[in-house]
Design a protein around this nucleic acid. Sequence first.
RNA 1: UGAGGCGUAGCGCAGCUUGGUAGCGCGUUUGGUUAGGGACCAAAAGGUCGUGGGUUCAAGUCCCGUCGCCUCAACCA
Length: 476
Amino acid sequence: MAKENQFVEQIADIESDFPQWYTDVVLKTKLVDYGPVKGTMVIRPYGYAIWENIQKELDARFKQQGVQNAYFPLLIPMSFFTKEAEHVEGFAPEVAVVTHAGGEELAEPLAIRPTSETIIGTMMGKWVQSYRDLPMKVNQWCNVMRWEKTTRPFLRTSEFLWQEGHTAHSTAEEAQTETLAMLEIYKQFMENCLAIPVLTGRKTEKEKFAGAVATYTMEAMMHDGKSLQSGTSHYMGQNFAKAFEIDFLGQEGVLEHAYTTSWGVSTRLIGAVIMTHGDARGLVLPPVVAPTQVVIVPIAARKPGVNEACEELRAELAAAGVRVVLDNSDNSPGWKFNEWEMKGVPLRIEMGPRDIEAGKMLFARRDTLEKSEVSRENAAASVQAILAQIQGNMLEKARAHRDSRIVYADDMAGILAGVEGGNFVKAGWCGCRDCEDKIKAETAATARVFAEGESAEKCAVCGKEAKHVIIYARAY
RNA sequence: UGAGGCGUAGCGCAGCUUGGUAGCGCGUUUGGUUAGGGACCAAAAGGUCGUGGGUUCAAGUCCCGUCGCCUCAACCA
């Protein structure tokens, strides 16, 4: 009990004070630190390593889809933004602008990119001439800046890292197919790599990207039942092609506007991992993206043979491709257990004189906190098997948590009660903007995504005939 | 941007009401004993009290400004 109390002092209670728990965990596990400028974050090595693993997994999938990486400039002439009316309206309030350089005021102010549709559209306009140039698919890994009012590490920062893919196609059908294909790639990545189940589908007009014809989203449920928009894929139709003159000569010799898409996920995904899987002890990281998959804690390390046996095990696992650390520090074993659990390492192996004598090792799983004795032989195979089990179990657990918190409502009171209880609420919607606004005003919940293929009799707000079913939730 | 809270040692905090020698716990350093769930003993180091100005013989404490962080609300990946 005394031990538990000591632990509780370190991070806030996850059930009663989730926001503070989040802040405590990201700082104490050294994922992140605050930058000196408001809303900026320093992504520390432990956090950046997660991002690198995310990048590695996604980048391979993009390339399979025929997307090539490129890099476009950070600075974009302000005039570019005014070319697409909805786009500038949506982004103008949060753009940071460079007005001075070289000791002089610039003739034209330069926007620090909040997103790159305008510059990439401009360049594609230059590069695309013929239907033979299409489809054109580029992606960039970069930073963007959006001057948000309130910020939180990973979830919402002034500057963040992301990838933005941009494609141009000769037909609407092909561009729409691409939009949905990327959404599906994201979904598979979320579930298989981050162990986060997501609901995918279209956003309402009110919630869609500024300048898009249609926005598709992945919504994930966090520990407290709130939703996190984890990634989006937009179908732009010809909106940006018209604004930036992405025109091509078709097979029939007629000049046409291309159809474009864009899609992105950001360092917010790290926040999603933290808030989906975390527990009272801190982080729980999915093995696929965990910077350290296995930590070996020696017991009675000064007894002869212990350190040697642990180092031998470490080398054996490392050689098999496992990301493994041997904690040789002077801290007591109990201290190490708690520390590495807070840091979310999926598997801990304890090895002491007793185990060495018996030819065994002790596995302690982070996801279930269960311990088991395992034969020292074929250690790498045992470790890989249990890591795969942990990965699968984490997804199942997150899915069960989410599914237990999806409820139905047929009126405003039901929606309010549902979201206050930390649920996703499915309800009918007539399709009008007024009803959508009312729900937001009265319940602080927003329409997260259309529930495809479901039907309801009446709109939960006005009682008229329902045209759609919407998933409402409070969101980060 | 609206409401509330907070800035004092690396971290967590007390001290402010009623101005008068800068404190506590954890951590750190050194030496020793330990080790299967945050070990123990002994000694030591560590501070422009966020920052600028004002009041005063005297400011961590009172007054004004300013910067930053956290929470809630409105905007977004």
